[in-house]
């Protein structure tokens, strides 16, 4: 279970997060929605320790992430980055097997490659892709390789940062389906940030809306359409007029 209490972060004069309170039960899939620049990525990075919050507490299974062994904590996480963040200098299989080949439980090269090919197959990529470099792949394929890398070590918690941004609607649907299948199949806890409402409906058990540095609304995805929050309604229906300023 992931729990955030009063998490705040400021960059210079820009107060991005003003005191986030949020909890995500184990095995559930939460999607955080919100406009561009509202601090969704910063929130994920705070949980992972990539950005240090100015105030507040982040607990993973009741343990404060600031006081937990970082390597042990990160070993439980997998993350799919917005642009894939694949290592250009490595072949696809080496990207997927990156974590498997390091640390105390490092696998031999041949076994790591086998696992990588198996994970690539799981995300719908053929074994021939394994020996290509990331630059030789299309955007959708890169995203799938990123997904394979995120699940390679079978993490308990997976984060997805804008998984469908920049993809065509069909490929977006494929990625959404894959995310949902993988999360259910692995029993993982998932947190996704996106502003793609199709993704929200395909991936989420619960939804939280971030606006102006605070959680504006949170609840089950089934309750999203009936909610009476005007900010949420403007966002999910993509209306130009409403309480959220269109020019930020």
């Amino acid at each position: 279970m992931i729990e955030l209490r009063g998490v705040a972060k400021r960059f210079g004069t820009n107060q991005v997060l003003r005191g986030i309170d949020l909890s995500l039960p184990k095995g559930q899939s939460m999607v955080i929605i919100g406009g561009s620049g509202t601090g969704k990525s910063v929130l994920l990075k705070c949980i992972l320790g990539l950005v240090r919050p100015d105030a507040g507490t982040i607990l993973v299974d009741g343990q404060d992430v600031e006081r937990t062994n970082r390597d042990a904590l990160l070993a439980r996480f997998g993350m799919l980055f917005q642009g894939g963040a694949l290592f250009d200098s490595m072949r696809v299989w080496e990207n997927v097997a990156f974590r498997l080949r390091r640390g105390a439980k490092a696998l031999p090269k041949a076994r790591a490659r086998e696992v990588a090919v198996e994970k690539l197959r799981r995300v719908g990529l053929k074994p021939e892709v394994a020996d290509l470099f990331p630059a030789e792949l299309s955007g959708g394929m890169q995203k799938r390789v990123g997904l394979a890398r995120a699940i390679a070590a079978e993490p308990e918690i997976i984060f997805f940062d804008e998984p469908t941004t920049g993809l065509d609607p069909i490929m977006s649907g494929v990625i959404n389906e894959l995310i949902r299948e993988i999360v259910v199949e692995m029993g993982a806890t998932a947190m996704t940030i996106t502003h793609d409402m199709t993704s929200v409906r395909a991936i989420a058990d619960r939804v939280a809306m971030l606006h102006d540095g605070l959680i504006r609304w949170t609840g089950p995805v089934s309750g999203m359409d009936a909610a009476d929050d005007p900010y949420l309604q403007q966002f999910i229906h993509g209306r130009a007029k409403g309480p959220i300023e269109s020019v930020r």
């Binding site: 320790g49 993350m79 980055f81 694949l86 974590r99 640390g103």
Partner: peptide
């Protein structure tokens, strides 16, 4: 391109 962040998340 967030590859440095990716390294951190990969321990």
């Amino acid at each position: 391109t967030e590859q440095v962040d990716a390294l951190v998340t990969l321990s």
